[in-house]
């Protein structure tokens, strides 16, 4: 009787789920085996994914095509990424890891530019505008929100935003005893910001717990399903 692929997958899934859940009792070698094996497998899987979905289409395949077609211009164009990739490999050798700094500088420069532009155009300006627009009665009316509700919610939102930003304002004066103290008004506003930050973190915590709980439920469900399949329980 041939063993189905789903059964093997279910067995593996069942086994590793049990091994990991055994941590609820306490740390044990089986849990360690599962974790170490998972790290190895996941790393290998990521390496394969990167190879097939990034390196192969962007480096090896073009090089192969250049080799086949003898396209010098395209080859010259590939020279820079090839050289950069080789330089990056020098990071594996501590003695010559300095050569990889050029590529790292390239990545940092590009990342910095992308971050600047994205933060500015994608978050800062739109979010500030949205805070202002919350008091826009026409926009509220378009969304079937009453003026009272819009003003009230807008005020809460604005207060939360300002006080939260004040909470993250860490400019302070130094006291004679060396400790730091924020300005009085900032301190008061930051205290209000604590409340808003606390509310936000509470909501986030509930979401994290919900996500974890969902994952646990999914795992238990898979265990139950495997047991059902294994024992033929309908």
């Amino acid at each position: 009787m041939p063993v189905s692929l789903d059964l093997i997958t279910g067995a593996l899934s069942f086994l590793f789920t049990i091994l990991i859940l055994s941590y609820l009792i306490g740390d044990n070698p089986l849990f360690k085996i599962a974790v170490y094996l998972f790290v190895g497998v996941a790393s290998g899987y990521v390496a394969v994914v990167i190879f097939w979905q990034a390196l192969y289409p962007k480096l090896f395949l073009p090089l192969w095509q250049v080799a086949l077609t003898a396209d010098i211009n395209r080859g010259l164009f590939l020279l820079a990424p090839l050289l950069g990739s080789l330089l990056l490999l020098f990071k594996l050798f501590p003695g010559s890891s300095g050569a990889a700094r050029i590529v790292m500088a390239f990545l940092v420069g590009a990342g910095a530019a992308v971050t600047i532009a994205g933060a500015l155009s994608g978050t800062l300006i739109p979010q500030v505008n949205a805070t202002i627009n919350f008091f826009d009665m026409r926009s509220a009316a378009a969304r079937n929100i009453s003026a009272f509700e819009a003003l009230g919610n807008g005020a809460i939102l604005l207060l939360g935003l300002v006080t939260s930003l004040a909470y993250f304002h860490f400019g302070a004066r130094q006291r004679p005893d060396g400790s730091a103290k924020r300005f009085g008004l900032i301190e008061w506003i930051a205290w209000l910001g604590r409340i808003f930050i606390g509310i936000t973190l509470g909501v986030i915590f509930a979401g994290v717990y919900a996500a974890a709980l969902t994952a646990l439920i999914e795992r238990i469900s898979s265990l139950v399903n495997f047991i059902r399949v294994l024992f033929g329980i309908p």
Binding site: I8, F16, A215
Partner: peptide
């Protein structure tokens, strides 16, 4: 089947499930 569904997802999801107890 073997790698993703057999090992990676079960282990990661189970670890996240264990986190439920810890978070609470």
């Amino acid at each position: 089947a073997f790698i993703l569904n057999g090992i990676i997802i079960p282990v990661e999801a189970a670890l996240l499930g264990v986190l439920t107890v810890t978070l609470l």
